[in-house]
Amino acid sequence: MTGIVKWFNADKGFGFITPDDGSKDVFVHFSAIQNDGYKSLDEGQKVSFTIESGAKGPAAGNVTSL
C-alpha cells in the first residue's frame, strides 16, 4: 500500500505514515526503511509499505520511497 509520511523523528528513529486509503495512521520504525545509508523519512514524503504485526499493534514494514 502507499501513503504519506505524517512525521518522522530521526533522533528517536520512528514516526507515522498516513495511508492513502484513509485508514488509521501506521507506526513506522527506522529498521523498516529499505534504503541504503541513513534510514530516515521526511514529512510529506510518498512511500510504499506493507502492514506488519508489531508488538504494540500494526506497524509499517518494507518501507520504500516513491
Rank of each mutant, 00 (worst) to 15 (best):
V5D: 00
I17V: 05
D42E: 15
V28T: 03
N9H: 09
P58F: 13
Q34H: 10
G44T: 03
L41E: 01
E43I: 14
T18W: 07
D25T: 06
A55H: 12
D36H: 11
P19Q: 03
N62Y: 10
K56A: 10
A55I: 12
H29P: 03
T64E: 10
N9I: 05
K24L: 10
S31T: 13
F27H: 02
D21P: 03
P19F: 04
T18I: 15
F30S: 08
S23W: 05
S40W: 14
D25I: 06
S53P: 15
K24F: 09
I33G: 03
T50H: 09
L41F: 05
E43M: 15
T64H: 12
V26M: 05
A32D: 06
G13I: 02
D11R: 15
D20R: 05
V5F: 02
V63E: 01
S23E: 07
G37L: 10
S65G: 11
K56I: 09
D11N: 13
G61C: 13
S40H: 15
G13W: 02
G37M: 09
K46R: 14
G22Q: 07
K46D: 04
G54N: 11
V5P: 00
S65V: 15
Y38A: 12
G61M: 15
S65R: 14
V26T: 03
A32G: 07
D20F: 09
V26N: 01
S23V: 05
E52T: 13
V63F: 02
Q34I: 14
G44R: 05
A10T: 13
F49I: 02
F27T: 02
D11S: 15
D36S: 13
S31Y: 05
L41H: 01
L66Q: 08
S31H: 07
A59R: 15
D21K: 06
S53V: 14
S53R: 09
W7N: 03
A55W: 13
S23Y: 06
G57V: 05
N9K: 09
I51E: 03
S40G: 11
V5H: 01
A60D: 01
A60T: 03
K24H: 11
K24C: 12
G13Q: 03
G54P: 04
V28H: 00
S65Y: 14
K12E: 05
V28I: 07
G15M: 02
G3V: 01
D21I: 07
S53G: 11
D11G: 13
K56F: 14
D42P: 09
I33N: 03
A60Q: 01
G37N: 10
T18R: 13
A32T: 07
W7L: 03
D36L: 12
N9E: 04
D36T: 13
T50V: 11
V63K: 01
A55R: 13
P19M: 06
G22M: 07
L66C: 09
G15C: 01
N35E: 12
K56M: 11
K6D: 02
E52P: 03
V47A: 02
E52D: 09
T18M: 13
G44N: 06
Q45M: 13
D25N: 07
A59M: 15
P19S: 04
I51H: 05
G61K: 15
G3T: 00
W7F: 09
D25R: 05
Y38I: 12
K12Y: 10
Q34G: 08
K6P: 01
G13D: 01
D36A: 13
V26F: 04
V47M: 02
T2V: 09
W7R: 04
F30R: 13
K12T: 06
S40R: 13
P19V: 05
F8C: 02
E52M: 14
A32C: 06
P19E: 02
S53L: 14
N35C: 14
F27Y: 10
G22F: 06
Y38P: 12
W7V: 04
G3H: 01
D25V: 06
G3A: 02
K39C: 10
G54E: 10
K56P: 08
V47K: 00
Q34N: 13
A59P: 02
K24V: 12
G22C: 09
F30D: 03
